[in-house]
Structure formats: structure tokens, C-alpha cells
Design a protein around this nucleic acid. Sequence first.
DNA 1: AATGAATGAGGTTTCATTCAT
DNA 2: CATGAATGAAACCTCATTCAT
Lengths: 218, 218, 218, 218
Amino acid sequence: MDHEMKDSETTTTAETPPSSRDQILDAAARIFGAKGYDGTSVRQIAAELGISAPALYHHFLSKEELFCATHERGLRIISALTATAAATMDASDPWDKLEAAAVAHCEALLCTEGYRTIISPQFPDVSDDVRARLVQQRDSYETIIKRLISELNLPAHIDPFIFRMQLLGSLNWTTAWFQADGSLDPTTIARRTVRQLRDGIHPPHASHVPPRQENDHV
Amino acid sequence: MDHEMKDSETTTTAETPPSSRDQILDAAARIFGAKGYDGTSVRQIAAELGISAPALYHHFLSKEELFCATHERGLRIISALTATAAATMDASDPWDKLEAAAVAHCEALLCTEGYRTIISPQFPDVSDDVRARLVQQRDSYETIIKRLISELNLPAHIDPFIFRMQLLGSLNWTTAWFQADGSLDPTTIARRTVRQLRDGIHPPHASHVPPRQENDHV
Amino acid sequence: MDHEMKDSETTTTAETPPSSRDQILDAAARIFGAKGYDGTSVRQIAAELGISAPALYHHFLSKEELFCATHERGLRIISALTATAAATMDASDPWDKLEAAAVAHCEALLCTEGYRTIISPQFPDVSDDVRARLVQQRDSYETIIKRLISELNLPAHIDPFIFRMQLLGSLNWTTAWFQADGSLDPTTIARRTVRQLRDGIHPPHASHVPPRQENDHV
Amino acid sequence: MDHEMKDSETTTTAETPPSSRDQILDAAARIFGAKGYDGTSVRQIAAELGISAPALYHHFLSKEELFCATHERGLRIISALTATAAATMDASDPWDKLEAAAVAHCEALLCTEGYRTIISPQFPDVSDDVRARLVQQRDSYETIIKRLISELNLPAHIDPFIFRMQLLGSLNWTTAWFQADGSLDPTTIARRTVRQLRDGIHPPHASHVPPRQENDHV
DNA sequence: AATGAATGAGGTTTCATTCAT
DNA sequence: CATGAATGAAACCTCATTCAT
């Protein structure tokens, strides 16, 4: 179909090869994200790129490998955005840093067209080898969140693992219901999610320090 | 050929024969749940049942219809468990009722072998007709949760819709990480999820009433 | 679907068995005629009758046999109509008799809803046994036409076999283009067909005797 | 992937390679012609070609499209032969031209092994889109015949439409009874068919002009 | 690096038919 | 007689993948 729009527009400087790896991954993310691993055919991805299916095999050994690379790129992007957002809040309140990270995570999920549903509660039915790499990629990303949470110095009665799962669960599930109709933007969603986990139904404070426990219910 | 059936008959009196249809749905739930819609073949489901693939078409018009029926049954089961659990807490604190419902929801998700990942953030790529029915089924279930939440009389600064999404997101995402190794049981997960949403990092109360705040416009 | 409209309305007197053989054949003719042998499933025929597919096997050994019986009934009906029409013109001009027969044939083809495309230039891919019977049925019918033609005392330069094939070809092919919109009725079609074969582009005569040959081109 | 091709290239210069596409269409015509659309499986066609069934889908999007292309090629061949034959009789008697065209039509039908029963009184049960294209193809061919007939200047009492249908019906129905046993060759059949339509049972003339009649409004 | 052609495996679905009830 | 359930065969078609060009 559109054989002619191959190169340009992705990289910056000059002598970029025509169909770059990142372009392929972006297209793959778009379709994998929209239809899932099993619902996506390599031909669809090739068609989206305007190349033939076998051409993909010059870049990736198999569909599994392509998915793995897409997944990796997706998480790498989110990681970068999240870490950067948290770092910008440097030296401030750790809750602010977590909130900034959550906003970045949520925006990456809901705004970038492609990399949203790569994040799925269920890995596709791939070989053990590839699955292990997917798990590792996800874990690698979660380390960032884990570190931010550890800096919160959560009170002892809060299990940081469950806390992290609740945060990620709430954020990741937004892909199930988010509508880009302006009624509710990713930033608001992410902020409220973090604050809900911090304050519950208590009203937020000016200072984010939770009320001291001894006078808690006076 | 009961391609269309209404409700009831799930837990009627007692020694109903396995009804064949329910057997099929249970097997379908098991495999759809494990591999997703696109990753599941009707042959696999038939094999699980020890029948031939065309035999399935005696009971369901198509794979889509089979999935739809499975989804419906899954949500019906969860609905029944959830509603029953909440009703058992009759006349008590509405937070207790919500907690009981969450526990039931989480147990249904993580313990019943089959119906867990029918619940997915993404509907499969089915016809518009079937998709509409899936949406309706999900909405019908969420109505139960919605009602329980409305009874909480949440303070005005909490958006009940986001609150519901956070609850369901946290609970549903458990399928992504839950390991049935005894370290963390569904009941604990569900309880902590509800309490986190209620108290944040504040310590729990004997009475569930949150401490009054000067700007809490009661 | 319409399980309840089974009996009545076909036969005249009284104690007719519920689903009669002729009713089945009429339904079969309708669908075979509309979709061809291969395009018709026994279930479609059963559905048209409001019975189950296996029920058909109580009346007919196989789909082939059902088709054969339908074909036979179709030809029998046309034979009867044709012979009767010709006999009504008893003792008159043999061309009138042929014309009457052609009209009957054409009406049977184009007006009876069912038995039209049973008449096809190609027999379906059935067993040799059944095919032989189909051929025999067709031949049996054509005998009637053959006899009517032999009574014409065609001039020697006309091959009666080709003449017959032209007549039947013209008439049978009407199913390919006939539109029941009133612009052209079966009677007219049949009459003109016969007259064309008799007169060519010469104008018809008051008496049907062709012009004598010696003054033919004076 | 030339799923769409226009015209020409059928008989261009000379040593064109068999073009693969035409080879497929010839095989398809052979089998479609012998068993009908519904009676033919793509596997049979592929087997005839010595390739696998999916390989066909490299050249044609579906069985319907394959049939449509076959039908088109068949009519294109017959059109070419017919038009050529009529043109060869250039400037002569229009009846001679029609006769030449009929002979070509009949030979194409009965001699070319494949493209005979593509011509059927009944279109197969295909999608509306494809059916429309089949109708258009047939109409396109009939235009040639229509033009030849209009040049006959038929007397007013002959309806040229019915005349055309009778001619085509007679010729096309030959596939139902023709036996290649030498007793009757396509040329003879076609010639007699045209002459019968012209002269009826009158003897043929040296000049083809019919005897003038008093009410023949010339 | 890229493609057109091809393929084996397997997808969903329909078919004619059988059989216990 | 009639049916619901079942089945083996086969239908059309898509898939990921390979390979000569």
C-alpha cells in the first residue's frame, strides 16, 4: 500500500537506515497493544510499516523475539519517564517523588498510543526462555518503584510489597476503563491514586506528614 | 439446543446433573483464563472435555458465543459470591460489607481455578454485538460494587468512580502476581486493599469512623 | 423455530400423516432449486420443514436419494402438466399441441416456486447409480416432447434431435434470465419460442402450414 | 501480489511465460466447470496444479475471487473468439456474422476443456459484491451478441431480446447434452441453431433475405 | 536488505450421517 | 418416528516461517 513512507522522521541527525528498529517496535507496540500477542499477526505489523512480512525477520528472529523487544522498549520508555519525573522532584518530599513517578507511569500508559497494553496482567504463551526475559524486564522496572516506596518510610503496619502491588494494580488497570474524553486526565488519576493510598478517606494535609499516631483519633 | 438461557439454575436445589453446559463452561473458563481468548482454540477446550471440537457447536453457535457465555457465568458466580458475602454482613458497618465483598471477589478470582482471567482489562477482538454484551455483563456486576460504595457515604473530596476503579484495579491486578504459595492469601490481600483505600497509611481504628477534621464538612 | 406448522394444508381428505413425503419433497425442491445440490444442506431442508435433520433419514436413505426423489417428482409434475396440456389440444394442429406443451413446461419451470432449477444442464456429483437414475428420469420426460415433435412431420432438412434440443434449451435457459415482473410472462415466452422455431423471422400465418416450398421465394 | 489486474495481456506478443495466474485460472475453470462452484474445493484446484491450497491465496484473496477471475477469463476468451469470428466476416451479410459468432461461441463452450460450464444459468451463492461483478461480466459479453443482432434489422414482430435469449439459451444448453463423439460437431450445432431461428422450418435460401411479405413493413 | 512464492500446521466452522434415548 | 448429541471428514482460510531470487 504505502510503500513510499519508510524512512525519515524518526531519528535526528542524518544517515539513518530506512526502516529502523525503533520504527518497527513502535508499530509492533501499537498493534500488540491493541490486539494482544495472539491477536496480532506479523503480517499486520509489516503492513503497518509498509514492508513485507519476511522483512521483519531481518530484524527479529521470530514473533516472540519481536514481542520481547517491544516489551523491553516499552518498559524502558516508561522506566526512563518515571525515573526522570521522580528525579525532577529531587530532595523534596518522597511522596511527591512517588506521585511524580505515578503520573509519568500513567501518562506513558494512557497517552503513548502504543505501549499501553503491552502491560498486561498476563504474559502471552511464549517459550520459557522468552517468558523469563519478560519477567525480568518487568521486575527491572518495578525496582524503580520499589526504591521510591522504600524512601517513604512506610509505617510498620503497611506491607511495602502489597502497597506496591496496589499502586501498580490501580494504575495499570486504568487501561481497562480510561476514556480519552477529557473528563479525567492521566495526571489526575495518578495523583488521586497515590493520595488515596496515602490518606485513605482522610482529607489531605498541607504538609504530607501523616498525623501522629497518638493524637490520631482525638 | 439451549443456545439461549436466562438466569437461575446455578445453585437451585441440589443434585442437578452436571448439566453438560456448565461443564463446558468450566473447562472453557479454565483455558480461556489461562491463555486468553485468542490463545485458546476450541479444539483445546474440546480436548479438555474429551469430546470432539464440532460437538461444542451443538451447545454454542461459535467461539465468540462460547466465550460470552463463559464470561457471563464467571461474572454471575462472582456476583453471587460477592452479593452473598456482603449480605451476610447485614446491618453492620458498610465498610465491613465492602470488605466482605472484596474478599469474596478476590477469592473468586484467585481460588476458583477457571474464572480468574476471564476478567481482563482488555476485551478480545470479537464482533461488536458480542462485545456489547460483555460490556453489559461487566457493568451489571460493577453495579453491585457501586451500590456498596455509595453506602459508605464517602467524604466529598473522594470521587466514588475513581474510588471504585482503584478498588477493582487493585483486586483484579492480583491475578498478575498472586502466587498460591501460602505467603499471602486472597483474604488478606482483599482486606488490606480495602483498608488501604480507607485509612491510607493511618493506623486502623477500632471504630471505622475516620477522625473528624475541622474542614470535614459533615 | 416453527415446530407447530407441520401437517394439514397439503392433502385434501383427512387422516394424512403429519409430515408427508410430498411436503418434504416440495421443501427440498425449493432449496435445491435455489441453491443447487452442493449448496444445499440437509439441515436447511429440515429447518424449512420444522423438523430435525435426522428425521429426514426416516424418509430417505441419504441426501442423494432425497435429491433423486425430488428430481423425479419435479419431472413427474412437469410431465403431467405437459402431457395434459398437449392432450387438451387433441386432434388439432400438432404445432398447437407442441405449443401448449411448451407453455406448460415453461410455466412449470418459472411459476412453481420449487421445481425450476432442479432442471439444470449439469447433474450434481453423485454416485453413478443415482446419476443413471437422474438421466433416466430426464429421458423419460423428453420422450413426451420427442413424440410431439415426431407428429410435426418436420421437413427432411430439419434434424428432429437438434430441433428438440433447441426447443428445450431455449425453454430451460429461461430460468437464467426470467424476471417475474410482468414484462414477459411464461406463456408468451413459450409461444414465441415455438413459433420462432417454426417460422424463423417469417411472419406467422393464419394457418400454421408453412408456405409451400416451390413458391417460397417468389 | 497482483490481486487486481486489468485486461490485455491475454494474447499479447508471443512467448510469455505461462504466467502462473493463467495456469491457475485454467485449472480452476476445468474443475469449476466440471463440478460447479459449491462442488469444487480449493484443495482440488491446488492439487490439480500440484501446489498446496494456501498457495492459492497468494494469488487470489478467496475462493469467490478465484471464481470471479475464472469467470472473467472465460468470458474474455469467448468474447475475443466471438468478436474475432464476427469481424472476419466483415462487410458481409449480418446473418453470416452472427452465424460465425455463434460457431465461435459454441466451440469455445464445447471444445475448450475448461471454460464451458462456468457458463451456467445460475450464479453460485456468493457475496453480493462478487455476484454483481459476475452479472456485469456476463452483460458485457452479451453486448457483443446484442450488437450483432441489432445489425440483422429483424422484422418488427420479432422481439430482439427474446431472440437473443433464445439464441443464447439454445447454444448454452448444448453443454447439457453435447457428446464429443463426432456425431455432431459444435460448428454444425451452432449453424443450425442460427438458421433455425432465421428460417424456421422453411428451407434455407441462397440469399438469406427472407421472402417479402405484404405486411412486412420495409 | 528485501520480496514473492510457497508451505505445514492449525484455526473455526459446516457437513452428512449415526445412534441411544 | 423423532430427537439431541456426537463425530470424522472436510470445508475455507490464516498463521509463522523459509527460501530462491
